[in-house]
Nucleic acid binder design. Structure first.
Length: 431
RNA sequence: UCCUCAGUAGCUCAACGGUAGAGCAACCGGCUGUUAACCGGUAGGUUGCAGGUUCGAAUCCUGCCUGGGGAGCCA
């Protein structure tokens, strides 16, 4: 008899098949019982009628605890009452391993309890849906980049010094020297872009900030493309295209998962309909002041400011040309207005905050050296980075997408901790 | 680091100065189409920890611990 996956069950209508998985739930009504079986690819209801079953097997079925691993044989039957469209008329059940006193019930649980049991929480339909969407988001991002000639170049995770100096880094011992967990692969991608033209890195990044909000993880994944001969305008166009491609792909492949998450799908469809909004930093400040926010030209946006700006639109909005003083040392000044840099943040709608930060980079040797000094960065440590301007410097740009924030927005979640299999949060590193 | 809210049964919560309770889970029983099934029963507690006020504290006060949400910072 063929062992099949629940995902493919429709191909076996009327046939007898074997299924291997776990018992998700059981409902019984005296002489009939329903076993909900999951195998990682889906959920299916198995039906057993006492009068038509082997008494020993019927009794076994009635006694198997939730989340025990089982192997079952049964006949696939079309049934309109099933959300899947099919049921399995069970004929045999083999208990592989009994799960006694499974901690997670089908009722509500608190966040603390669920996070302590993240290794089991992942088994629930909602978490499975999110993990599958995460998989699709990653694949769509990479497919888009690969199809446009980008090359994946892996950045190191152990780094000798702060990339940008601002954020708190995790320190570790590197054979007697200090080393730090990477907070960005960008500087290395600039080197790679001078070798391969268009590149990206995709990996975990670490921030030792004592942040605990629904928008922060200590360890998160970031995709960072970097492109030689690409300037500010084209940089934004590329960001818009890749974001739209990912959303279109998720809408195509995950309607059911999005519905399970109770995502308002029309909000995502709207994003595809028109170009992303654009707003200058200057205009943003003017708007915020008109709304009574306490903010001056030269200040960075706080979270309430960002939300107010994002709420002006029902799609994402680029905020661009920030004061150089509040941005990273490597960002290129606008030639028309050197006090602002050719940088943009992409703010997601619906209060999901910044999902992309990008900029054109300084390609002039003297200016970059000057900025390194102004920021009190160790010149010695940046010699290799300066070499990129010494030897065949070109205009280049790049950006970073925060994977978990992007997924949180796509899925319409209230907290990004559900978008990563094992979230690292402030004071929480178990399991 | 700061602000704020909360810790009571395995889980989710109620009791707000006068004998600690419910739903779910567990266990026993009933039910032939259930969808977090339902119905009846049994068992389950050092109320986060330490101190204080009071005739009497889960409840009021002080300190500590743990967690949630937020600020700052960021993706």
């Amino acid at each position: 008899m063929q062992t099949v996956l629940i995902r493919d069950i429709g191909q076996y209508e009327g046939k007898k098949v074997t299924l291997k998985g776990w018992l998700y739930n059981r409902r019984s009504s005296g002489k009939i019982q329903f076993l909900i079986i999951r195998d990682g690819t889906g959920f299916i209801q198995g039906v057993m009628v006492q009068a038509e079953s082997d008494p020993e097997i019927y009794e076994l079925a009635a006694s198997i605890p939730q989340e025990s691993s089982i192997e079952v044989q049964g006949t696939v039957k079309r049934d309109a009452r099933s959300p899947l469209g099919y049921e399995l008329v069970l004929e045999n059940i083999v208990l592989i391993s009994e799960a006694k006193d499974y901690p997670i019930s089908l009722k509500e649980h608190g966040v603390d309890f669920l996070l302590d049991h993240r290794h089991l929480w992942l088994r629930t339909p909602r978490q499975v849906a999110i993990m599958r969407i995460r998989n699709t988001v990653v694949k769509a991002l990479r497919d888009w980049l690969d199809s446009r000639g980008f090359c994946l170049v892996d950045a190191p995770i152990l780094t000798p010094a702060a990339c940008e100096g601002t954020t708190t880094l995790f320190e570790t011992d590197y054979f007697g020297e200090k080393a730090y967990l990477s907070q960005s692969g960008q500087l290395y991608m600039e080197a790679a872009a001078m070798a391969l033209g268009r590149v990206y890195c995709f990996g975990p990044t670490f921030r030792a900030e004592k942040s605990k909000t629904r928008r922060h993880l200590i360890e998160f994944w970031m995709l960072e493309p970097e492109m030689a001969f690409v300037e500010h305008e084209e940089n934004l166009a590329i960001q818009e295209e890749i974001v739209k491609y990912v959303i279109r792909t998720v809408l195509e492949k995950h309607r059911q998962d999005l519905e399970l998450l109770q995502r308002d799908i029309s909000r995502l469809e709207k994003v595809l309909e028109k170009p992303f909004a654009r707003m200058s930093y200057d205009a943003a400040i003017e708007y915020l002041q008109s709304q009574g926010h306490d903010i001056q030209w030269g200040d960075d946006f706080g979270a309430p400011d960002e939300t107010a700006l994002a709420n002006l639109h029902d799609g994402p909005v680029f905020v661009e040309r920030f004061p150089a003083a509040i941005k990273a040392f490597y960002m290129k000044p606008d030639p028309q207005r050197p006090e602002v840099v050719l940088a943009a943040d992409l703010l997601a709608p619906e209060g999901y905050g910044e999902i992309i930060g990008g900029s054109q980079r300084i390609d002039d040797m003297d200016l970059l050296l000057q900025r390194i000094k102004e920021h009190n960065l160790p010149e010695e440590a940046f010699q290799w980075y300066l070499d990129l301007r010494r030897y065949g410097s070109v205009p280049h740009s790049g950006f970073g997408i925060g994977l978990e924030r992007f997924i949180t927005w796509i899925c319409g979640l209230s907290h990004l901790r559900e978008t990563i299999p094992f979230p690292r949060l402030l004071n929480r590193i178990y399991p």
